[in-house]
């Protein structure tokens, strides 16, 4: 039983249709994104299911998942706050912003808040150097940019996401 295929038949077909019929392997990365949107990380089961759909070995799928930084093989927070601390951002105060954010969330880089909502990560250049400090938010199957950030703007976002999760519960 291929759960990914049975749960998302149309999405899987739409992904496969982008590539020549005999080139199913090209679908590995889009399928990893699809699987990750469901659980927020890539499970061993998803690796096996993607291998079956793309007609490659599970080892090959696992190696792709391990190579790229946006695929996560461990569960983290529901949202990953990924702060750019590369050179151009640091020249515009990204290091100080990260310190403030760590103090506000009460966690270090690589950790997750006690409520399981937020993980904090440092990432490389996100092509937003003119609007630093900035971060991207990865979670719920989406990636969104948040630019020209201050502690106030990030606090408002964190509170909003916590309130929304509270309502869902």
């Amino acid at each position: 039983m291929n759960e990914l295929l049975s749960k998302y038949p149309q999405e899987v077909q739409r992904i496969l249709a982008r590539y020549p019929a005999e080139r199913k392997r090209s679908a590995v990365m889009p399928l990893l994104f699809l699987a990750q949107a469901e659980k927020n990380y890539i499970t061993p089961q998803a690796i096996a299911e993607i291998a079956e759909i793309a007609e490659v070995s599970a080892t090959e799928v696992a190696s792709v998942a391990g190579f790229y930084t946006l695929f996560h093989e461990e569960p983290g927070g529901r949202y990953r706050i990924q702060v750019c601390t590369d050179l151009p951002c640091v020249l515009r105060g990204a290091d100080r912003f990260l310190q403030e954010l760590k103090a506000y969330l009460g966690i270090e880089v690589g950790q997750t808040t006690a409520d399981g909502m937020f993980s904090l990560e440092e990432v490389k250049c996100l092509a937003a150097c003119h609007r630093a400090p900035m971060f991207q938010l990865q979670g719920d199957g989406q990636i969104t940019y948040h630019e020209d950030q201050t502690l106030e703007t990030v606090r408002a976002l964190v509170e909003e996401l916590r309130a929304r999760a509270g309502k869902e519960a």
């Binding site: 982008r18 590539y19 090209s26 990365m29 889009p30 990893l32 994104f33 190579f67 790229y68 930084t69 946006l70 695929f71 990432v123 490389k124 250049c125």
Partner: peptide, 10 residues
């Protein structure tokens, strides 16, 4: 035409 997303690799 089709888009293809990478996943974080310079």
């Amino acid at each position: 035409l089709a888009t293809h997303l990478g996943a974080g690799a310079y």
